[in-house]
Amino acid sequence: MTSTRSDLPNTIFSIIFWLLLWTVLGKVVGEVLLLPTPIDVARAFIPLLADESTYISISITLFKIISGLLLAFLCAFLSSFLSYVNKTFRALSASITRIIRATPVASIVILLLVWIESRNLSVVISFLMVFPIVHENILKGLDETDDDLLEAASSYHVSAIRKARYVYLPSVIPYFESALSLSVGLSFKSGIAAEVISLPSGSIGERLYEAKVYLETPELFAWTIMIIALSFLLERCFLVLAGAISGRILK
């Protein structure tokens, strides 16, 4: 808390500095189409916030990306558990997660457009961005479960459910939280990139694309700022939720 407070003046200073530099550059360029100033972007923001369709776009995009995220968490929990108990499954899942992580997002997007409907692309992309990170982190947590404690639990005939609740989960939770902070923002931004390519009706990606096509650069900037804010908020929401759940489990 103390360090956050002491950083505040520097943070405010850096924000003002970059806004001023942006304004100066905007004035020097002198063309809204190429580089709008912060004032131009603010002017574009106001009608955007007043427009009902903005919130519909945000809802559509958030619904799809959160669906992909939740599906990824579920599959990652399942696959990491299977990898923990079965060496063959571990080898199979390790290779597939490595391939997903190494493949460029653009290649995945284009391939997926061949296989699935474009309106579902952002769901699949956010899933693919999150799944390998969460899978690997949970597996690491399982691998690092205290062997001595596991032996004690077995010798005391602790049931599988209690072992999961009191032995495995406390070991896995810190790794899961770390995976969340790494992956949620990434999946949101990748999901929107996928929307820009697949253009599902009413999504943020489509609005971003339209702003580009109609050369509405201030609106493009306004949507970008909105995406950054939403990405930050989504990440915070997931971390707060995960913190509340882990607080209950680790009590």
Binding site: D146, D148, L149, E151, A152, A153, Y156, V158, R162, K163, Y166, V167, P170, S171, I173, L250, K251
Partner: peptide, 16 residues
């Protein structure tokens, strides 16, 4: 001692 360090005293007993 072989206790679960991240959970509470009571939870260590509720394990069994």
């Amino acid at each position: 001692d072989r206790l679960s360090m991240k959970i509470s005293v009571l939870s260590n007993l509720m394990m069994v």
